[in-house]
Every structure is written in C-alpha cells, then in structure tokens.
Amino acid sequence: MSTMSRRGLKSKDLLRQLLREYYTGAELWLPNDYPMREFAFQTYESEVYVRHMAFQSAGALREYLTNETPRQAYFSAALYRDPAADNMEDKGWLGSELMFDIDSDHLPGCGEGSITVNGRKIPIVRRECMLKAKREVIKLMDVITDDLGFSRSDILVYFSGNRGFHVVVMTKDPEWRTLPSHLRKEIVDYVTGKGLEPETIVPRIPKRARPLPPTKEIGGWRGRLARLGLTYEDLLSDPQRVINIAGVHIDEMVTQDVSRLVRIPGSINGKSGLPAIKLTLPGDLDKFEYGPHLSPFRCDAIVSSQVDERVKLEIMNEKYSLFPGLRMRVSCYVAVFMALNRLVKIDRLI
C-alpha cells in the first residue's frame, strides 16, 4: 500500500499494518543454503521467541513475515541436517559461519546506550558512535581479508538495524565451518589483540644491528602495526595503547558461539524500527551514514503517549519528551520506534 492510499488511515493496530506493508515488498536477503538453517522469531504480541523453524522457499518466509509481523527475525549462522528439530542435539550441527558483531555502545566513550522505561530497555544510538563503529568494521575487514585470507565476496556486512554492524564470513571451507567454539576464541584474541606478547612480535636481532620497521607484507600483528603507521618501539613502550588502536572492538561471545542467530538482512529490527541493511563493499560501507533516511517508513503519524510518567529520550540525535496524555504529530520513523518500544500508540497515519 502506498503512503498516498494510507493517508488518513485509522485502524486498531497501525504499527502492525506498517510492518505488514513493509514485508509485502521488502528486499530480504537469504544465503543459498537457507533450507539448512534454523529460523527464529520474536512474536509481535507476546514478544516470546519462536525457534526451530525451517523454510524451504523464500516465498514461504515472506508469507510468514507478512502474516506474523515478528519483532525480530533471524536465521542461524549454523547449518544443520535437520534445522527444525526441537533440540540442539537432534539438529545435527554441520558447521557454523564465522561471525563478528560490532556494537556502537560497547565502544570506548559511547556509554551505556539505553534507558529503561517500565522495565524495557530502550536503545539510544548516537550518530558519532555509529561512525566509530563503522571505523571498527573497516579495521575488521582488513583483518578478515589480509590476515584471515577471505575474499570480500565471502563477507556479508550489514547494519544491524539498531546500533551496530554484523560481519559474517560466509565460508564454504569445512575446516573453518567446523572450528569449535574454544578454537574460535583464538580468532577473537587475534582480532582484539588479547594475549599479545610484544616480545614475540618484535623480531630478535643482534645487539648492534639496525632494526627495520614492520612492513605490511609480513602479515600478523606486525603487518597491522605497519598498516596503522605504528612501530615496534610503540608496541614495546605502551602495548595497551597499541592494542587499543590496532585491535578491533568486537563482541567476543558472538564470535565464539557456534549456534548464534543472525538477523535476516532486510528484516525490521524490533528495537528500533529500522531494517537490517546489507552493505556492499567497499562502496556502501564507506557511504553509510546513520540517520532517518535509513527508515522505510516515510509518512507522518499522530501518536498518543502510553507512558505513566515523563520520559525523555533521544532518537537519531533528536530529543523527545513524553508525558501521560500527550498526543503529537511525528515522522513515521519516530512513531514506529516509539510504538515498538510501547511508548506510544499510533492513532493515525498522515
């Protein structure tokens, strides 16, 4: 349904209607082997998680999303013999992709990143922190390609729809896919710099020899020093500073978890109302900017407050104040954000 034909629309649950319309035409991205993956959703009404689902066609998935309008939609990073089996033991784990998660609120100086209203955590995402997160993704991409050896075509990068980015290495190599959790920890440490021993990185040379600086060609942490213009002296004099600069701030648990769920690119993130957006490399990632233009909901809405006391919040660096009995006109992206977080009810679309 177009915005024009929706004008003046008044119905019981306009949020759900907006989601339904979105999923009717949404560009969803699925890997080729999606029938071997588990799908999981958070239901619209009761917000419980429904797991252990499998889809044999993209059409069936779209139909499910359109009918059920779940708050969150995921597929597994793992491949299973029987993805719909009820418990993990019976699924028959065949391997899992390598996954990285960069959250802007976990970056130095980006704070807690949420406020709590009626026991519900409401995300606060700052544009400058998203820019920092993007820089981390660029650093991570160098590590994944130059050091871990994957080609850009193997890598799925997308905006999570809320406050960060997901990077999934869609490798076909069974050696990588079947890497157990405790060995993935080695990848985490490599990426973050945890456990780095400067003495093993810096080459041992005779006393009177003149050391040469690290070069990009050598790879490993020596190469990373070179790529960032750092020297062996920097590493030896202040290793923590070097690790902070050259290490990538990833969520360690995500990379180690071999049964992690991946948000479906193109689906709506139920915390923010923004879609998870697949980014091509390097173009889309370079151009990516956090802002209202990311929302597919282009209309205005009259909303009525559902809060019991005054609530101050920030959406895309814009400040809002809600109090009981308030009725106001806002852009649809704001209305969807607030309605998903049960702060308002959408009364009318304009």
Binding site: G149, E186, G193, K194, G219
Partner: peptide, 9 residues
C-alpha cells in the same frame, strides 16, 4: 596463540 604468530592471507 594465533595473536603471537606470523599470519597472512
């Protein structure tokens, strides 16, 4: 540990 090794491509 991998972090202390020469790793490339």
């Amino acid at each position: 540990m991998l972090v202390n090794r020469i790793v490339s491509r």
